[in-house]
Nucleic acid binder design. Structure first.
Lengths: 150, 150
DNA sequence: CTCATTGCAAAGGATTTGCACTAAT
DNA sequence: ATTAGTGCAAATCCTTTGCAATGAG
């Protein structure tokens, strides 16, 4: 699927409910939907500033909120003290591995885990709604002594 | 192992480094070490107030910090927007199931998961340092319509 | 006595909100 | 024109910190 189509989906989402398609919203959407990264609000703002797009902090947060409501972006909390956001794409549910040195994130899906989570919850008297696994470790690059940013 | 012994361990920890054994520290330690709960700082403060123990917010946080440093208490972040603390006890590493309605937490250990986490990390080029699985769901009580606090 | 702790209030970091102003439709 | 979005600053929430007063050893 062409990534660009995601931007169109977002435009469609906005039009459907008569919400203005503003350059700020599109700028945030492009970063989140076209790049394979897990951005924090602050990273988004910094990246936009670097690209010469002027967007206030409040607007970044509001754009994120709209994107999350549209279902095109999902929120993540890796316990870093702030949240990250990534494209929802087509991948159903997946887990994350986070480098504790450079913050690089990779994702993967594991069917066994899906089943185990539901079973484990049930065995404790809970009905599973969702789950989240984050594996913390050191990535290749950081172990080799040439850390990069995520 | 007698739970009370944990309090003595904490006293010993403090004495060893010539730190004052204050009633505030002991009060926080008793809640964290003698009860099977995952307290937030705010819950600790509220519970202490209810028991008539007067402890300021700052002191609660500082007592927690000391307990974590002693190794007797561990910090948890379930992505709720605040942290929780629980006794480190003897249980090695374990996972959590959190009720999204009442906040009740139950824990369990699963060997398969321990192995899987290391393998999964390795397959992505990471060396696992730790991991964390939180399963979100509804507990028995909440499903039955009689929610309780954790 | 001496030094670390305590309480209070101010400071911080991430995120949200109120409001006058600007822009999309 | 309308109505929602935007920027800015103030406000929140959780947690930390500065500092004078207090208490443990």
């Amino acid at each position: 699927m062409d990534r660009r189509a995601l931007i169109d989906e977002f435009r469609a989402y906005l039009r459907e409910r008569d919400l203005p398609v503003t350059p700020q919203r599109l700028a945030v959407a492009e970063l989140l939907l076209l790049r394979d990264r897990h951005f924090s609000a602050e990273e988004l703002e910094r990246e936009l500033a670097r690209e010469g797009v002027k967007v206030s902090t409040a607007t970044v947060y509001r754009a994120i909120e709209t994107l999350v409501k549209s279902g095109l972006v999902v929120e993540r909390d890796f316990g870093e003290g702030f949240r990250r956001y990534e494209s929802a794409r087509d991948m159903p549910h997946h887990e994350h591995v986070l480098c504790t040195s450079c913050g690089k994130v990779v994702e993967f899906r594991d069917e066994r885990l899906e089943r185990m989570a539901a079973e484990l919850a049930a065995s404790k008297g809970y009905v599973r709604q969702s789950h989240r696994l984050v594996i913390y470790g050191l990535c290749d690059a950081c172990r080799a002594g040439r850390p990069g940013r995520p």
